[in-house]
């Protein structure tokens, strides 16, 4: 696209849901994919954290020759350094995932950045159609595959939804050959998080159907009755037209035909 548009993708170290192992974070990788679509090789890939982390190579393996790491200890506040980096580098479009896959995953970073920089923010972006004349046409992802078109002026921050295009495969060779620029930055400790107790997630109990019956008979019935809906309706007899009507009625009832 326009070479004058400076696109930055912020990436974090993800976590595989099954193995707990570090990986390319899904949404962040989609943010890189979207960045590559907008800026090609000119995309600026930024990570705040440990430059030695091998996962960063997986992002670079998507087709970038170089990336930047703002060196940070874990559990420190990355907001100030990223904010400074973005203003210093004159970023126009900043892309990142909605929530990190590790740490607090509050998803607040984009909002805090937007507030700090005074930039507009779009969350849950499915696609950025084009960037022209200081404006971008963006598609937001809504539930059930729906989309909303929004126009926003540059510079802006966008978080990338799971509905955005899948991240391309990361190639090993380009990944290990990419060069890293490490910028040392001031450390700001996150004091509040230090007081938190963090434990492995407890499974949440599924909510039971609570029966608030006034008399014993009703409570008994609720406790012993077979749940309704076991075994559906089977139509064997009738003309195709009647059968189709039955299906049609159900579709109308479920409001999938309008």
């Amino acid at each position: 696209m326009q070479p004058s548009v400076n696109v930055v993708s912020l990436v974090s170290v993800g976590r595989h849901p099954q193995s707990d192992r570090s990986r390319r974070a899904d949404q962040d990788a989609r943010a890189v994919e979207l960045g590559l679509k907008l800026a090609g090789k000119n995309l600026t890939l930024v990570h705040a954290g440990d430059p030695e982390n091998p996962v960063l190579r997986q992002y670079a393996g998507m087709g970038l020759d170089a990336f930047t790491v703002l060196r940070q200890k874990s559990y420190s506040d990355v907001l100030p350094i990223i904010g400074n980096f973005l203003t210093e580098n004159n970023a126009h479009v900043v892309l990142m995932g909605i929530r990190a896959e590790s740490g607090e995953s509050s998803g607040m970073l984009p909002y805090l950045l937007a507030e700090k920089l005074g930039w507009p923010l779009l969350s849950r972006v499915a696609d950025i159609l084009h960037v022209e004349n200081g404006k971008a046409d963006v598609l937001l992802a809504l539930p059930r595959g729906q989309r909303r078109a929004v126009t926003v002026s540059l510079p802006f921050i966008a978080t990338v939804d799971n509905a955005a295009k899948d991240a391309r495969q990361s190639a090993y060779g380009p990944g290990i050959r990419a060069s890293i620029t490490v910028l040392d930055a001031e450390q700001t400790a996150d004091n509040m998080a230090a007081s938190w107790a963090i434990s492995p997630a407890k499974p949440r109990a599924k909510r039971m159907k609570v029966v608030k019956a006034k008399n014993a008979a009703d409570r008994f019935k609720a406790a012993t009755a077979k749940p309704v809906g076991g075994g559906g309706n089977v139509l064997k007899q009738g003309t195709p037209a009647e059968k189709a009507q039955a299906i049609f009625d159900l579709l109308l009832e479920e409001k999938v035909i309008r």
């Binding site: 595989h16 099954q18 193995s19 990986r23 390319r24 998507m62 495969q169 090993y172 060779g173």
Partner: peptide
Amino acid sequence: LTLEKGDTPNKGAQVLENIIATDNPNGFSP
């Protein structure tokens, strides 16, 4: 094609990613 271009077709990319992250092709918990 795989190591340099990152162009393993269809489910290939996903399977490789799973193997890397979970040591099995279908991404089950190790």
